[in-house]
Design a protein around this nucleic acid. Structure first.
Length: 418
DNA sequence: TCTGGGGTCCTAGGACCC
DNA sequence: TCTGGGGTCCTAGGACCC
């Protein structure tokens, strides 16, 4: 009977939201209950407090301390004449940064990712504040992923510190194999990770979080009611703050409550596709494969100013920032051997409202000057009544740069020049 | 005490084609 | 003459994730 969880149907792409094409497969598959997919074992491997743990390798004297990692613009530790290091303290911070991550000791004070550093400083004023060192994190990321890849080839990159691994071929040996992976990651990096092992990605992701840090959590389909249903619905990857609030307003807090919710009631809030996905997710159903590669869809750069800027008075600074962002986007395109046709800007104002404008060019480009010209076209369409907090540049509709001078599809040329 | 930066995907309306 | 329906592209905004 549990095979419904394995053979099940709905799929949710990255971000957790339903995808029209995949959902349309649902009816045909679920209407034939005898169609049994082979049992899958999917592991979700999540490094424990990754950035903070890398920092502790760099600065072992901080082990056990409450340490917070902020953005890259923060003050570096200062080496003293006596050989010890002087670290910045949270209470001395002034600015607009947010917490990237924190050690478990800092989390005990209530300091978590995405919190403003100023707010975090009030909760833990004596905590140590370190700048993010992405070069080091990328280095350790490569190491742990390579260590896993040496043993298990079917890997999906999720971010710098997370992967999914398809361990189906190991059958009953999958749990023991997952333990081997943990050991291999530790050998390669000196860092611990947590692994969730389950019949699909959705459940594996939930599981890896259940026994953090240094956990290995195995979930069988028959455990869903006891181990998954009591958890808050927001533990499902794809149910964020907005959906959580809407669910709570309907009296739905746990995954179990969501599983039993009336679909008609859910539909009044969410629409057909998301409703269907919510229901299946609550039942632990997820058929998405482990995807070993994906193509880049967009490239962007953005920056938040240290103070809000005025269009007229700060025109020179804004122009300079815009040009710099375009140059960086062009550099990223070059690095990835890509060009793009749709150039867009993003503005966030002092009241945190955000607008975007974009324009699709007749042919793809990777040239900073061409990107800059396009962003200026976009900027002309923005009403400037408020001070600007953030400026961003994005390029999408990407292709191979060898096609960048090629004419766009005939249809696009029919549009009047803007 | 206001909230970074780099992404993906979905929705929805209008233009346009067949 | 009037109506319509499917499909694709473009644009803007928003939810969500790490």
């Amino acid at each position: 009977m549990h095979d419904q969880y394995l053979a099940a149907t709905i799929a949710s792409p990255r971000g957790g939201k339903p995808n029209r094409r995949e959902v349309s497969l649902t009816a045909s598959v679920s209407s034939s209950p005898e169609s049994l997919a082979p049992r899958r074992w999917i592991a979700h491997l999540d490094m424990d407090a990754f950035f903070a743990s890398v920092e502790l390798l760099k600065y072992p004297e901080l082990r056990g301390e409450a340490v917070v990692i902020g953005g890259g613009r923060l003050q570096q530790p200062v080496l003293q004449p006596d050989g010890t290091r002087q670290f910045a303290r949270m209470r001395d911070y002034v600015g607009r940064g947010v917490v990237t991550t924190s050690t478990y000791a800092a989390r005990a004070f209530g300091v978590f990712s995405a919190m403003g550093i100023m707010k975090a400083a009030r909760l833990a004023p004596d905590s140590i504040l370190l700048p993010a060192d992405f070069e080091a994190y990328r280095e350790y990321s490569t190491r742990f992923k390579q260590a896993v890849a040496n043993l298990a080839p079917v890997i999906q990159n999720v971010g710098i510190d997370e992967i999914y691994i398809d361990l189906s071929e190991h059958g009953d040996g999958a749990p023991a194999f997952a333990a081997r992976l943990k050991a291999a990651v530790f050998d390669a990096t000196g860092l611990s990770c947590s692994i969730g092992l389950a019949p699909n990605k959705l459940l594996a992701k939930i599981c890896s979080d259940l026994e953090k840090p240094d956990g290995l959590t195995i979930l069988h389909p028959e455990d869903i009611a006891t181990r998954v249903w009591p958890l808050p619905a927001k533990k499902i990857n794809g149910i964020g703050p907005k959906a959580t609030a809407k669910l709570a307003a309907m009296g739905i807090v746990t995954i179990g409550e969501l599983a039993q919710a009336d679909l008609g009631m859910l539909r009044t809030q969410f629409g057909d596709l998301y409703t269907g996905w919510l229901h299946q997710a609550a039942l632990g159903i997820d058929d998405r494969p482990v995807q070993t590669s994906r193509e880049t869809k967009s490239v962007s750069r953005e920056t938040t100013f240290e103070r809000d800027l005025q269009v007229v008075r700060d025109r020179a600074v804004l122009s300079e920032k815009l040009e710099s962002l375009c140059t960086r986007v062009a550099g990223d395109l070059d690095k990835h051997a890509l060009a793009g046709r749709t150039v867009g800007i993003k503005l966030r104002f002092e009241d945190f409202s955000t607008v975007t404008r974009d324009i699709t060019l007749p042919s793809a480009t990777a040239d900073a000057a061409a990107i800059l010209r396009a962003t200026r076209d976009c900027l002309r369409r923005v009403p400037f009544e408020k001070k600007i907090r953030l400026l961003g540049v994005r390029i999408s509709t990407l292709c191979d740069p060898s096609q960048s001078t090629r004419q766009a599809p005939a249809q696009a040329e029919l549009f009047p020049a803007l």
